[in-house]
């Protein structure tokens, strides 16, 4: 609104606070109180109505130091998270390639879209009995479940992103005589990156579910099986530490993806796009 266009420059790299500032106490205090309330209600109701072995905050807290140094727990964690990482890696590589092809080639799109949507809509858990027929009750079944659980969210998101590249960008590229492959890397990839990250976020959540479900089903060692075993032997507190770790991993991925978006894609601001 100023008179010279140079003075119209918006402040650089200063994330405008999206909401009216509440101040630290305005955010922190209600959260702390709510957290305390949740913990207290949980503790009180377990003490009042449920058997002693049921997990409650005080005993879970006491179980943490014992559990996190427990070799069995650590091995189980490494097993499960390692499998999730490996499966996600496979899903990301293959899923991105397939997604780019589907997104940029109308023929591939028409050929493959229905398969992708179909497999995506199948609740991943139902293929477990089939996978355990194929791979037996081994960690290969778990890996296959993770890949299946994760890959389609990546394919769907990457192909959406590759398809949604604004036509102006492609025109600029052609005008500056960019080669086809160059265009793919310089324009389609960056434009699809936000979608890709959204896909990873979804995929990681599903991969985690896939890993736990596979361990429940095949009883192979891992965090899921640890939880199952501990709760069957009425050691709910230890089992709950496992749940908390899974939750932390899930939240961690969310936070990490959000951080990546802010750090590496400062130009991508969803609120502006939808406006």
């Amino acid at each position: 609104m100023a008179s010279l266009d140079a003075s119209l420059a918006k402040p650089i790299a200063k994330e405008a606070p999206r909401r009216r500032a509440l101040g630290v106490s305005g955010v922190f205090l209600p959260r702390l109180l709510a957290g305390l309330a949740i913990v207290l209600v949980w503790e009180a109701s377990v003490r009042a109505f449920l058997p002693a072995y049921v997990a409650k905050p005080s005993t879970v807290l006491l179980a943490i130091p014992k559990t996190v140094v427990d070799a069995a727990f650590l091995a189980a964690t490494a097993d499960t998270l390692g499998a999730v990482a490996q499966g996600l890696g496979i899903a990301v590589v293959i899923g991105t390639l397939v997604g780019l092809v589907i997104g940029r080639s109308p023929t591939a799109d028409r050929m493959l879209r229905h398969y992708v949507n179909g497999f995506y809509a199948v609740p991943m858990i139902v293929i477990l009995p089939l996978l355990s027929l194929w791979f037996g009750y081994t960690s290969a079944t778990r890996l296959a479940t993770i890949v299946y659980a994760a890959i389609f969210s990546i394919v769907v998101n990457v192909s959406d992103g590759a398809r949604a590249v604004p036509r102006e960008y492609m025109e600029v590229a052609r005008s500056f005589r960019a080669q086809r492959l160059r265009g793919l890397f310089e324009i389609v990839l960056p434009a699809a990156t936000p979608y890709f990250l959204a896909g990873i976020r979804l995929a990681a959540g599903r991969a985690l579910i896939g890993a736990v479900v596979a361990e429940f089903f095949t009883a192979i060692g891992g965090l899921g099986y640890f939880i199952l075993f501990m709760s069957r032997t009425f050691r709910h507190d230890e089992a709950f530490v496992g749940v908390a770790l899974l939750a932390a991993f899930g939240v961690g991925v969310d936070v990490f993806v959000a951080w990546c978006t802010r750090r590496f894609l400062p130009w991508y601001r969803r609120d502006e796009r939808s406006a």
Partner: peptide, 20 residues
């Protein structure tokens, strides 16, 4: 018949890549 060297265009909607 296709964009050639020695010619450049300035676009109405700028056509800047937001990620650059």
């Amino acid at each position: 018949t296709q964009p050639i060297a020695g010619m450049a265009m300035v676009f109405q909607h700028f056509g800047l890549f937001p990620w650059k």
